[in-house]
């Protein structure tokens, strides 16, 4: 169930260039059902900035009733968010959307992430591994300074890093790594910029895949029709990224 809660900030730290890791605590955590769901965060109690920010969930700790968000502080809103300290409270609406279908993986899964699309793949990797699924992580970043969670992913499975400028790992995009890897997986999960998602789904047309999309959102719950995309089903079919997604099977969304 979706809840709106004033959650306690437990921890916040910068983990890469412009990238922050924020952990909050509260009962809303127990409503989270799948990795890939997101929360809608109000960064200020004033009208400025007005709208909530959709932030992805990188890790869930049901026992401590805590979850961790990772986000890029680039605009006014996320910069304000990055100033929250332990002891502060945070107005959170969530969990929102439908996450990755963990149960769809059989033996081995590829988790392909780009930039700020990487965070939800971490909780996904944890849950897949807990289910006995082998995970391979292919993660793309802008540069070495933007890389985060490399060690954490490595603890869960084989991890490959690509950077656009070549300052760390393979130079180029995740697709450059994917071209070199064996296609011995049954399912892939991906989250990142739309061009990356497109490239990934064309790379594996024969595989079962699930993609998490990004769109400018208003309400986050499906009421405002800001984040719609057409689908491959018909000329008139559409989805709302926030409430029908953000995760969709590959081949459905025309982004």
């Amino acid at each position: 169930m979706i809840r709106q809660e004033r959650m306690q900030v437990v921890d916040q730290k910068q983990i890469a260039r412009h990238i922050f890791e924020l952990t909050v605590q509260g009962g809303l955590t127990s409503e989270m059902t799948a990795p890939g769901q997101f929360v809608h965060v109000r960064v200020a109690d004033s009208y400025e900035p007005l709208l909530r920010r959709p932030i992805s969930v990188a890790a869930i700790d049901p026992e401590l009733q805590q979850f961790t968000m990772i986000y890029r502080a680039e605009g006014r809103g996320t910069s304000l968010l990055s100033q929250k300290k332990p002891g502060d409270t945070l107005d959170v609406l969530g969990p929102l959307g439908n996450g990755f279908p963990v149960e769809q993986a059989e033996k081995k899964a590829y988790l392909i992430g780009g930039g700020i699309g990487v965070p939800p793949l971490y909780e996904l990797a944890k849950q897949l591994n807990a289910n006995g699924i082998q995970t391979v992580h292919i993660l793309g970043f802008e540069s070495k300074q933007a890389v985060f969670y490399e060690e954490k992913f490595k603890e869960l499975g084989e991890t490959h890093i690509a950077t656009v400028d070549g300052s760390h790992g393979t130079q180029g995009f995740v697709t450059h790594i994917l071209n070199e890897l064996p296609k011995d997986f049954d399912t892939y999960f991906s989250c990142g910029p739309t061009p990356m998602l497109e490239a990934v789904q064309w790379a594996f047309p024969e595989k079962r895949g699930f993609l998490s999309y990004e769109q400018r959102m208003g309400c986050g719950i499906g009421a405002c029709f800001a984040c719609v995309c057409r689908t491959t089903k018909s000329e008139t079919d559409y989805i709302k990224v926030c409430s029908d997604g953000p995760v969709f099977p590959a081949g459905v969304v025309i982004a």
Binding site: E48, L50, L51, R216, G218, C227, V228
Partner: peptide, 13 residues
Amino acid sequence: TPRVAETASGMLN
């Protein structure tokens, strides 16, 4: 899309 944009104390749609 984009169909919405935040503005000072408001939004455009």
